[in-house]
Design a protein around this nucleic acid. Sequence first.
DNA 1: GAGTAGTCAGACAGGTCTGTCTTTTTGCCC
DNA 2: GGGCAAAAAGACAGACCTGTCTGACTACTC
Lengths: 224, 224
Amino acid sequence: MARVTKTSSGTLVEPTVCPPRNPHGRAFAEGADGAEPKARDRIIAAATRLFCQYGITAVGVDAVVAEAATAKATLYKTFGSKERLVEAVLEKEGAAWRDWFIGELLKGEATPVARLRRVFPVLREWFNDDAFFGCPFINAVAETDKRDDRMRQIALHHKKVVLDTLIDLAGQAGARDAHGLAHQLGLLIDGAIVAAMITKDSNVALLAGQSADMLLRNLCAEAA
Amino acid sequence: MARVTKTSSGTLVEPTVCPPRNPHGRAFAEGADGAEPKARDRIIAAATRLFCQYGITAVGVDAVVAEAATAKATLYKTFGSKERLVEAVLEKEGAAWRDWFIGELLKGEATPVARLRRVFPVLREWFNDDAFFGCPFINAVAETDKRDDRMRQIALHHKKVVLDTLIDLAGQAGARDAHGLAHQLGLLIDGAIVAAMITKDSNVALLAGQSADMLLRNLCAEAA
DNA sequence: GAGTAGTCAGACAGGTCTGTCTTTTTGCCC
DNA sequence: GGGCAAAAAGACAGACCTGTCTGACTACTC
């Protein structure tokens, strides 16, 4: 039932030819100095692509190895197990995404309120990416044992970093209840991500943005 | 990596002993007249439990057969393939959930606004269920090929039925933009479901309810 | 009681899964 | 060029996957 064994496109990706992409450009597949990426990075990049599109359980290590143009022994020497590879993928992809997302919020000169208003336009860019397949953390929890805490903890860490940034901005923006406002925005973010994954319509970000504006006007004095 | 082969608890469930449960009681495992449930219903009930907790891809048909206390031939005679079993499970579980959820919103005497205000308290009940593992449709999309439309279409149908109910209520409540209000509530619902799955904290429903109240007050004249 | 439809139990085929191991090739330093 | 470490290629083990098939048991109808 639709597992992924070989790379679906018969042709393998040429990692060095693939330029950094939208929106949080998966450039880490290239060495920082533009040199040929090491096996470890190629494996993570390949696994990220495949896990995000097809789901973690549905993708075998053989498919990852083929897509990364490496050898199985290298994968196991580097990561030890598929499970640890999954953790490495989530850690790296999560950090890359947060760097991009938070960077987009904070870049340039702007008031805290203006930065918070950027959340959903920035998410909309992400939703428009061809390689947008939903949030890898939400998806990972969705497809693993919900009574096992491991994956949930990993996802919670990711959410916490994002929420802490929002709490910070909400506080700077003079919100009475910065924590509450940030968590309400967090719910809208999760909802928009899931809706965008299912509908493939990036405009859900505009709708979520309207709700967010309303929250800001009601809960944040400085957002007249 | 943590697939589900046999039922994890060595003991098999005794379907006839299991009373209907919270909150949208999975009573369909019993014949409508209380008789011994037929194999088809036992299989659907078992598959629903296992798919929801462990994920669809991670659960093999052998585990479903063991949990349903039936034979593999019966499963394949009845459903033809695992894929069609998955569709049957989602169809039945989706219908049961919607009947429960919409029934809770509409039951008793209440104004349309009051019914809309029930959305998140009702969801909170669901989140508090031991067998709450997130939305099966969201989870199913999350763990399958995002470039394949089949699962997305199934999930979209489920969302549409719920949204149509909300649009109806929003219209009755005199909302200027019933469609927009309903979709904003839909985003909050999805966000709350995902957040509840990840945090295991049903109080996210209260937070989402606050946002919903704000939306109603701002977009719905009759919600003073 | 004989026949029949539904079910159960389990072997089986062919393929895939994770993970290990050996052998060959490659790239690099001296 | 010689030696060496890293990586590639792929065979292999043992388990599990989906799906098929045969044979036995059960419950109901005539």
